[in-house]
């Protein structure tokens, strides 16, 4: 099968302010259950995209660093081959897809996921009756016992492709925007087709500042990070 597009993202750490707009936009778009206090205490909160904060130094020479973290949609995803029921697979557009109605909740994929971006539904998601009005009808609500993860807002990709086809034209850079990228006030997140040499994301993926997190595993992540620029950096890394 010919691979037409390869969706990917660039994350400019120099622009990310840690404002969390992407986190809430994602939760709204993708019907993510309300993360209660207990969920955090049990380390079972669900955030398809999250902002990790790293410390560098201690007062007065101290820096805090922010890294948006989401499913890396790896070309050789280690979570895919371990699924016994093909609930997660790689589609021909570079997406690491999760098929909820196949998932039987073995959690092998989460075990094999080095980025901790797969989430298990330990509880049946519950919203008060009125809040259910807000749920996005394009996105399945995941029931207890199955895995979920960032889908690159696949529902938006499908909708855009369908609308663009109806208009009788090709998808161009900027047509498809996942919820997190759309909200990002500083434009730190850029989404697009890595196979399209003219796309913004493809340009950023070749930047002098680009690197991929846990690149040494050889999984070929589709998310390119751009290094934070800091002439006054204490070290060239930050600790967790």
């Amino acid at each position: 099968m010919a691979i037409e597009r390869k969706w990917g993202m660039a994350v400019d750490a120099d622009k990310c302010t840690g404002c969390q707009a992407c986190v809430v936009a994602c939760q709204s778009e993708n019907n993510i259950p309300i993360n209660e206090s207990d969920h955090f205490l049990q380390r079972r909160a669900i955030q398809w995209i999250r902002i990790e904060r790293y410390w560098e130094g201690e007062f007065p020479d101290v820096k805090a660093r922010f890294v948006p973290m989401l499913c890396q949609h790896c070309e050789n995803a280690p979570c895919e081959p371990v699924c016994p029921v093909f609930a997660t697979y790689h589609n021909n557009e570079g997406l690491n897809v999760q098929v909820y109605n196949r998932c039987i909740g073995t959690r092998f994929c989460a075990n094999n996921d080095p980025w901790n971006v797969r989430f298990f539904n330990f509880w049946e998601p519950v919203w008060p009756e009125t809040l259910r009005n807000q749920l996005n009808s394009d996105v399945t609500v995941r029931s207890r016992g199955i895995m979920e993860k960032c889908s690159f807002c696949v529902q938006r990709i499908r909708r855009t492709v369908r609308e663009v086809t109806r208009e009788g034209r090709e998808v161009v850079d900027g047509d498809v925007v996942p919820a997190c990228v759309q909200s990002c006030p500083t434009n730190a997140l850029v989404f697009g087709d890595l196979n399209d040499d003219s796309s913004q994301v493809s340009g950023l993926s070749k930047s002098g500042r680009q690197y991929r997190i846990l690149d040494q595993l050889g999984t070929e992540p589709a998310i390119y990070y751009l290094k934070k620029v800091d002439p006054n950096a204490i070290t060239e890394e930050a600790h967790a």
Binding site: Y54, S207, G208, R209, L214, Q216, K228, D230, T235, A238
Partner: peptide, 13 residues
């Protein structure tokens, strides 16, 4: 292999 990498500006592109 730090998760967070910092550029001191020399490879800024």
């Amino acid at each position: 292999r730090p998760v967070y990498q910092i550029s001191k500006g020399t490879d800024h592109a």
